[in-house]
């Protein structure tokens, strides 16, 4: 809008300044706007504290935010060092979130049934916009998550972080390690290609040799187990890897194990806080002090 457009009506009404000037006097500077915005009911209803960098506000930023409140307000000054934590636990969790998002998107394109499953993967690779990238991110994210889980475990062991009072949380961690690998394993079958089929065949063939519960395991046949009622049959929903196995893998992969793992993760993170945040870097202990313990 230019000045000449707006001059006329102003002069008719006898205003001294043009409308533009009037309007401009009402326009607020960004800093004023910013200030007023934070006075509004809407803003105040969302954000419960000021934003300046006072220690109080910085604590409130963490404590009053549902996503950040897993953190304490303050931590050991050296606990943020990469050399100490390697960041592996956090990266593992981030990869899990990433896998949940890409996995959900993949589910929109996937039918867990024979014939359709493989076709859907081809469809993802060649037709769905960014489908190939999506699938690749899910696959490599899963592999990366297995590696970061292992490395997280190595770090926790090397820093003795399973020692009192964190013994129980180490056990939750071992279960999460198991579930991470099972998540990856159940996902392996879903493309329904030769790779997944034979990998899962090899993997579940071990189950038929389970002692007592498998039809080829020690004391299994003696107890009446056959290929049609043993533990492998329960896993696959059949005596061979077929349509039922695909559906079961899909449900374990997309629903059951993610829920179990999420519950364990909640416990895991909760216990990290309740056991006094991460273990260190703690002051070193001398021999004389160890002898007293």
């Amino acid at each position: 809008m230019t000045d000449t457009d707006t001059n006329k009506p102003d002069q008719e009404e006898g205003n001294k300044g043009g409308l533009f000037t009037t309007l401009r006097s009402k326009v607020k500077s960004p800093s004023e706007l910013n200030k007023e915005l934070k006075e509004t009911v809407l803003w105040k209803s969302i954000f419960r504290h000021k934003l300046d960098g006072s220690p109080r506000n910085r604590s409130l930023a963490v404590l009053s935010n549902v996503f950040l409140h897993l953190h304490p307000a303050r931590i050991n000054r050296d606990a943020v060092r990469y050399n100490f934590t390697w960041g592996m636990g956090g990266i593992t969790f981030y990869l899990f979130v990433n896998l949940t998002l890409t996995g959900t998107l993949l589910m929109f394109y996937f039918h867990p049934s024979k014939g359709e499953a493989y076709r859907d993967i081809m469809f993802l690779q060649y037709d769905v916009p960014f489908g190939n990238l999506l699938r690749n991110m899910h696959r490599w994210g899963a592999h990366a998550m297995v590696i970061t889980t292992w490395l997280h475990m190595v770090r926790v062991f090397m820093t003795g972080s399973y020692k009192p009072p964190r013994e129980f949380n180490w056990n939750i961690g071992v279960l999460l390690l198991l579930f991470t690998m099972l998540l990856s394993f159940t996902g392996y079958l879903l493309p329904d290609d030769q790779l997944g089929f034979w990998a899962v065949t090899v993997g579940t063939n071990m189950a038929r040799a389970t002692p007592i519960l498998g039809h080829e395991g020690p004391f299994g046949p003696e107890l009446g187990f056959t290929a049609f009622n043993d533990v492998r049959f329960a896993l696959l929903g059949g005596s061979v890897v077929d349509a039922n196995a695909l559906l079961r893998a899909y449900i374990w992969h997309c629903i059951a194990i993610p829920i179990l793992a999420s519950v364990l993760m909640i416990v895991h993170f909760w216990r990290v806080r309740k056991d006094g945040a991460i273990s260190g870097p703690a002051p070193v202990m001398l021999e004389s002090e160890a002898a007293r313990k």
């Binding site: 990869l95 990433n98 493989y118 993967i121 081809m122 690779q125 190939n132 990238l133 699938r135 690749n136 991110m137 899910h138 696959r139 490599w140 994210g141 592999h143 990366a144 990856s184 394993f185 392996y188 493309p191 329904d192 290609d193 030769q194 790779l195 997944g196 089929f197 034979w198 990998a199 065949t201 090899v202 993997g203 061979v240 890897v241």
Partner: peptide, 29 residues
């Protein structure tokens, strides 16, 4: 993750075929 996913494609073999054993047939790594 994005660079890795752009550079390398997730493997997809032929459709599952119980009559054609992969050799070697390996579990996930």
């Amino acid at each position: 993750l994005i660079i890795w996913s752009i550079c390398l494609d997730a493997p997809l073999e032929d459709p599952a075929n119980p009559n054609l054993t992969m050799n070697p047939s390996k579990a996930p790594w």
